[in-house]
Design a protein around this nucleic acid. Structure first.
Lengths: 200, 200
DNA sequence: ACCTGAACACCGTTCAAGT
DNA sequence: ACCTGAACACCGTTCAAGT
């Protein structure tokens, strides 16, 4: 039990992170469009102008949320990756992790991939996305070196795998595919990616 | 030259479609978040309450835009589809068409795939998406019957192909992949999907 | 440094009233 | 049937002033 100070000082202590926490909650519960700085301020118990000290405008708060999302996604993927595995189970594991993140954070993912960001934040997000792509590219390159997969432009192989993973994750996140069906289908999807659709 | 009535009547004639046209324009130029019913009304020259006659709220207008987007996407794909082609060029053509639509209508696509819609509109959109999936499923089933691709759960093959197409389209739309690079990569992507990544 | 409170210029939505 | 004009309850953002 933390003692609550009965005299409420006019400042908050760590308003910035309190705003981000509260914002992510409403993002999750009601979506980005329903997010109001004034409402956040009310919930936290601070004046409506206070958020302006920490985020130059509403978009800056959304950008910060999205950037945090990229960090968490990358950490999720890094944790899920097992470099000792052969390619197929390794990709399956990564895909499952991405799928789980997507369904658990659907609104956040939508925000992360949305078009409207400050140029500065856009740059940071492009860099974060690029880092994720690079780790996938590294996996592809490794597999090529081991002779597990075909030669050819590694960027194209990475793009293909990345597109398939991204596609199924967004299908699952927005309900275009049933989430459980998508999870169950990961094995088959990765198998098809590796083996192709043509008869042998 | 249409004669302009100098006495401006208090009604508009076809306000509903005028609103949709203007809304799509701002969606394209400034994004969904910047869309204001009052501003639309001003631009069209009608009172700020007039839109309420045609759309019960702002979300209803966004839903109508998204639904129209699904219609146009399906029409684009139907036009681009050439059933006389073998599977590989057929899929390549469809993917190109989807890519073009995605880059030409990035904000609209984002709106179409966004999570926040009225339940009623969501149902219609799910149905529209389902129809698109079904036409892809039909192509897959045909190819299976002709022995062009492997047997196995057609739904999984469709999901895999659909995920890859959707993934590359969204990459292109939001700039995660350079649009031109994505278009150039379509041949390779479809080839990889069909042939797989494993060495033969 | 950090926050308040008032002010400004906007919103979306509703509703009686007009034509 | 379709629109207006006023009204209501909100917004985001700015800025002098407070501590």
């Amino acid at each position: 039990m933390m003692p609550m100070s009965t005299s409420r000082p006019y400042h908050h202590g760590d308003l910035r992170s309190a705003l981000l926490t509260a914002a992510e909650r409403t993002l999750r519960d009601k979506g980005a469009a329903a997010l109001s700085l004034r409402e956040l301020a009310r919930d936290i118990g601070v004046s409506h102008a206070a958020p302006g000290r920490h985020f130059k405008d509403k978009q800056a708060l959304l950008d910060a949320l999205a950037l945090d999302g990229y960090d968490r996604l990358m950490q999720t993927l890094a944790t899920a990756d097992d470099p000792t595995l052969p390619l197929q189970p390794r990709l399956t594991g990564l895909t499952r992790a991405y799928l789980r993140f997507a369904t658990d954070n659907a609104a956040l993912l939508e925000l992360m991939y949305s078009l409207k960001h400050d140029p500065d934040a856009s740059e940071q997000m492009a860099a974060a996305a690029e880092r994720t792509v690079q780790s996938l590219a590294a996996i592809v390159a490794e597999a090529q070196q081991r002779g597990e997969i075909i030669e050819g432009d590694p960027a194209m192989l990475t793009l293909t795998v990345g597109a398939a993973l991204h596609g199924i994750a967004t299908f699952a996140a927005n309900g275009h595919a049933d989430a459980q069906a998508a999870v169950d289908g990961v094995d088959t999807l990765v198998h098809l990616l590796l083996h192709g659709l043509l008869p042998r």
